[in-house]
Design a protein around this nucleic acid. Structure first.
Length: 112
DNA sequence: ATCGTGACCTGGA
DNA sequence: CTCCAGGCCACGA
């Protein structure tokens, strides 16, 4: 369960207004190749978890098609944080979370 | 303990 | 855009 805990701890660090990919979280958890395990860990989260699971999307910036019933809620939450683009996907170029920048609102570097 | 199967993925063709 | 194969981990038999 160690890896799973690592994953959840990493996911919990994602600040508001930012999103991360499954791969990012896996890497932050110390297992870069376990993106799928991230999805599995999220699937088992309790409803009252403090983990911002909705900020985790796939490498395309899209909500995982296998996200189950939570997909709709996820889209709503992402939209609320202004992360969702017009195409229904997160623009990772702008909002991708950098594990190195701890809490900070660390200036999301300007994009263009 | 081993073995087989499945999973909210990812990158390449 | 779709299809294909790889790789890591957890779980049940």
């Amino acid at each position: 369960v160690s890896l799973r805990r690592q994953i959840l701890e990493a996911a919990r660090r994602i600040p508001r207004g930012r999103a991360a990919t499954y791969g990012d979280v896996a890497a932050a958890a110390g297992s870069p190749r376990s993106a799928r395990e991230v999805g599995r860990a999220l699937a088992g989260l309790p409803a009252d978890t403090d983990v911002p699971w909705w900020r985790i999307v796939n490498s395309q910036g899209a909500i995982s098609p296998r996200a189950g019933g939570g997909a709709v809620l996820q889209a709503a939450l992402l939209a609320e944080e202004g992360l969702l683009g017009a195409d229904g996907r997160v623009d990772l170029r702008r909002f991708r979370w950098d594990p190195a920048t701890e809490t900070s609102s660390a200036a999301p570097k300007a994009w263009d």
